[in-house]
Design a protein around this nucleic acid. Structure first.
Lengths: 126, 126
DNA sequence: AACCTAGTTCGACTTTTCTCGTATTAGAGC
DNA sequence: GCTCTAATACGAGAAAAGTCGAACTAGGTT
């Protein structure tokens, strides 16, 4: 990714809504940085995650096994963490599983139209 | 940047418009890949280049000295090449200098709204 | 308790990207 | 021709990102 001065956005524990497990540490809306968000989206696997979360959104968030990637778990942890720290997804711990959803409102507020591009993306064939 | 299968988009010499020096090799519109474009934009220096080209567009394209970066020329060459190969800018050789402009129409056609995000970007203070 | 299970953490390795110095090219002007 | 100039090419070192195995943690079940 980048070069120049990249200080990462402060990662902050948010106040938890009642009834839900608190979200894992994530940057606040106002700390979202375009260059970091774009960097997080420049990986096909992560782009796939965000797109799937957008298109196949259901009533519950998805644990990371749900995506069906044929990759070791440590690799998936790495990518989900990158997405969360960039501010693209919010993750909550439900018992054993850690479920994710896209921070649609936050992203739409800061980078309007970006998620539409992700939703329209198709992985390269071949 | 990424991981998975990333084959780069075919770099193709375009037919030259009369009176202008031909553009340097660049991917065709239909070969533009979102993940590559986002990767190219995930660097603050390159984001600055594209934003400046968008905001301070004048009647002529800009040579790469115009940007006033305090970096060695070989570094600038590297970044401009990355932008061109990702399909963000078009470069033409005018005598000694190589001038660049953003491929606004192509990008707007393929990734509508993306350039607006770049134009709205501000480098992190500090 | 023992066991399974979803996911993390650590550390090592590989790959990619960035940076920059040096040498070189190609065009312009003399 | 020679010189100046904008930029490239090469190559090496540094930094960052990706990949993955192995060990571990925490929650659930029996």
């Amino acid at each position: 990714m980048p070069s120049i001065a990249r200080t990462e956005p402060a990662v902050v524990e948010l106040p938890e809504p009642p009834g839900l497990p608190g979200p894992l540490p994530e940057p606040r809306v106002e700390d979202l940085r375009l260059e970091i968000v774009l960097g997080a989206l420049s990986d096909p696997l992560r782009l796939t995650v965000v797109r799937k979360l957008l298109l196949e959104r259901e009533e519950f968030d998805h644990p990371c096994g749900w995506f069906g990637f044929d990759r070791p778990k440590s690799t998936l942890t790495h990518h989900f963490k990158a997405l969360r720290e960039a501010g693209l997804i919010r993750q909550r711990q439900y018992g054993l599983e850690r479920r994710s959803h896209v921070r649609v409102d936050d992203l739409e507020a800061r980078f309007p139209g970006l998620l539409a591009l992700v939703a329209a993306w198709t992985p390269r064939e071949g």
